[in-house]
């Protein structure tokens, strides 16, 4: 269909201090082949043409790999299609005449900057606390293939490294827990020999920072895994728990 008419209920908030509220918009002439962000572009053109403030939202690559887009659409992070980011969601997932709720990712640790843009720098600070390897790379690093790594571990580490840090796990979790993100970041190093040297300290420091940022506690509902656009598995949270426990007890 090339001429969908939609009612959008969008969170509008001028800045971090503003209280914000849901505002209704009608958008017309939407093609089912458009991505969700293109539909938002059409809305913004309509708003600009009528002299209104366009809706601010995060976006960058529009290819599902940068983790920038972050909308909570009709009650789900990145919308109703599993395994997709908002930029990869297409309007064919909706019908003419639909009402669509569009909200920012909500968590105390992700304060709203403007409209649908939230500050996800809490994730950066968690990464700074331990999401790295302290290796001297000044010219004498050995060939990576010289260190044998079991295929299964290499695959699991790669799966964990698929996390794009979009924050859908936090937005989806009823507790606003960041455990899937931290679990993935800890796992991608813990599974490889290069990362195992600092593994226990890494888990402790990243969890300490996660707690300091004000994320909630994980209650193992599994919602994060279902809504994660990259399919990060819940077993990464169990690995994080193991890493932290073994680090704390030894």
């Amino acid at each position: 269909m090339d001429n969908m008419n939609l009612t959008l209920k969008i969170w509008r908030q001028k800045n971090a201090q503003d209280k914000g509220k849901m505002t209704d918009y009608n958008v017309t002439g939407i093609s089912e082949h458009m991505s969700f962000l293109e539909m938002m572009d059409v809305l913004n053109e309509q708003l600009i043409n009528s002299g209104d403030e366009p809706v601010a939202f995060d976006h960058d690559c529009r290819e599902g790999i940068c983790g920038s887009c972050s909308m909570f659409i009709n009650g789900e992070a990145h919308g109703p299609v599993k395994g997709t980011t908002t930029c990869q969601l297409h309007m064919r997932s909706f019908s003419d005449g639909d009402t669509i709720y569009i909200e920012p990712f909500r968590a105390k640790a992700f304060p709203v900057i403007k409209d649908l843009i939230v500050d996800r720098s809490a994730f950066d600070r968690i990464q700074h606390a331990g999401g790295y390897i302290s290796i001297n790379t000044s010219g004498n690093t050995q060939d990576a293939n010289a260190t044998p790594i079991p295929k299964e571990n290499a695959d699991l580490a790669m799966d964990a490294a698929m996390c794009i840090g979009c924050g859908a796990c936090v937005a989806t979790c009823k507790n606003s827990s960041a455990m899937l993100f931290v679990g993935a970041k800890v796992s991608q190093y813990a599974l490889l020999p290069q990362g195992q040297v600092e593994s226990k300290m890494r888990a402790q420091n990243m969890v300490a920072q996660m707690d300091a940022e004000g994320f909630g506690n994980c209650t193992n509902t599994g919602a994060c895994m279902v809504e994660c656009p990259k399919g990060i598995d819940l077993s990464n949270i169990a690995r994080l728990n193991r890493e932290l426990l073994s680090g704390s007890l030894t």
């Binding site: 849901m22 909200e103 105390k108 009823k174 606003s176 994320f215 919602a223």
Partner: peptide
């Protein structure tokens, strides 16, 4: 406390 402002629409049953 970790989510001060609640969602206007939240489909918890879609994923847990």
């Amino acid at each position: 406390q970790a989510r001060e402002i609640k969602y206007a629409m939240y489909k918890g049953s879609a994923n847990a």
